[in-house]
Design a protein around this nucleic acid. Structure first.
Lengths: 203, 203
DNA sequence: TTACGCATGTAACAGGTTACATGATTAT
DNA sequence: ATAATCATGTAACCTGTTACATGCGTAA
């Protein structure tokens, strides 16, 4: 149910076509809320049916066309209402920790492969998010730059500060996951260490 | 797609009825993978149809009955295959960080309410998980005790060590989320501080 | 003329949520 | 008798995933 608010957040900066929205989405809010094009286009149509956005059909060449969406007052109200409403937290469903709880049921090699993949997964997220932090500080993220351009002078600091805060949180979480995977790898080594093989053994 | 493996993990310890499984589930693996009864019963039936478990109908009083499930060799193989297979990571969809990225669009009070709720949410998870850590150390979690009872002496250390490792990871993550919310609260205070009101102002 | 980027989707399916439905057994 | 707990589900809905489908515009 958050997708529409993620879309509204971007459209509030200025009207966009579904295509452009999807592109902007992927390089801004998509870092915290992924959505494929096949979900964005229908959602925009649904939002239009509910009066949150308005689409304006535009010609593009002879036969081509595109639909430019902008937020209606109702859409703006829906967004600010959502911002002020309590967030509904989903129940935990964490496949990585589920598997971790039963690592004794597999081989040390499989356990290591799982933990290395976990580390790689979060390392890759970490790099994305650290990249975003740099782009926030330098205001080189195109979405943020557009947003700052339409933001009153005295609100720019807050806008940037909350973006930074958000990505700092993501970065901290990624680091924790990486550390956890590394402690797991050390644990596998320790537990699979053949007691007869001496302190350097294990593989 | 992880639900069935969570169910298998529990059933591998010993046969259970859907009802007992659901109860045991909630107080063990349910801490990392939530599932309501209404999902567990049909999943067990599906797993039975696919030959992963076998259900044995038992009488209970005159008219009552219950179905006792146990894992088949195929179910055991499916579980160990899953343990050795790469985990598929879902794309990020994080409502809390989504909202955090746009906190400038709401009032300081709403921002604080959101951050306090976030802290409370993770505080509550943290308490659950820290409680589990204690129950792991004292082997007072009933599921773990049952598992340990059917585990060979030399594998008990590993079984317990991986459970501990799992919950340590969850605890670390909860702490990070709480710290993040607290830094957010400090940030809201700083940003909503009226520059004319002096260092103690802000509300 | 060919490939790449613009532009918009549909369809089938999987997985999870919420609310509801039903009845038996056992303890007080 | 009544309430708690045992016991097992169904149905409707929402969200998200995956794969596929279609055609136009423009630059090399």
């Amino acid at each position: 149910m958050s997708l529409r608010y993620a879309l509204l957040a971007i459209l509030r900066v200025g009207p966009l076509s579904g295509y452009d929205l999807a592109k902007q989405f992927a390089q801004s809010v998509g870092h915290v809320w992924h959505a494929p094009d096949s979900q964005i286009y229908p959602e925009l149509r649904k939002m239009e049916a509910e009066g949150l956005v308005e689409g304006e059909q535009q010609a593009r060449g002879e036969r081509g066309h595109r639909r430019l969406y902008h937020v209606t007052p109702a859409g703006d109200a829906a967004f600010t209402d959502w911002m002020a409403a309590p967030l509904d937290y989903q129940r935990v469903r964490d496949p990585a920790h589920l598997r971790a709880a039963y690592l004794e049921a597999t081989t040390p090699d499989a356990a290591r492969a799982f933990l290395r993949a976990h580390r790689a997964q979060w390392q890759s997220e970490l790099e994305q998010w650290e990249g975003e932090l740099v782009r926030i500080d330098t205001v080189t993220n195109p979405m943020l730059a557009r947003r700052i351009a339409v933001t009153a002078e005295q609100d720019r600091e807050r806008t940037i500060a909350y973006k930074r805060f958000t990505y700092e949180g993501l970065v901290a979480r990624a680091r924790i996951e990486i550390e956890w995977a590394e402690r797991g790898l050390a644990l596998v080594d320790r537990l699979s260490d053949d007691p007869d093989a001496g302190p350097a053994g294990g593989r």
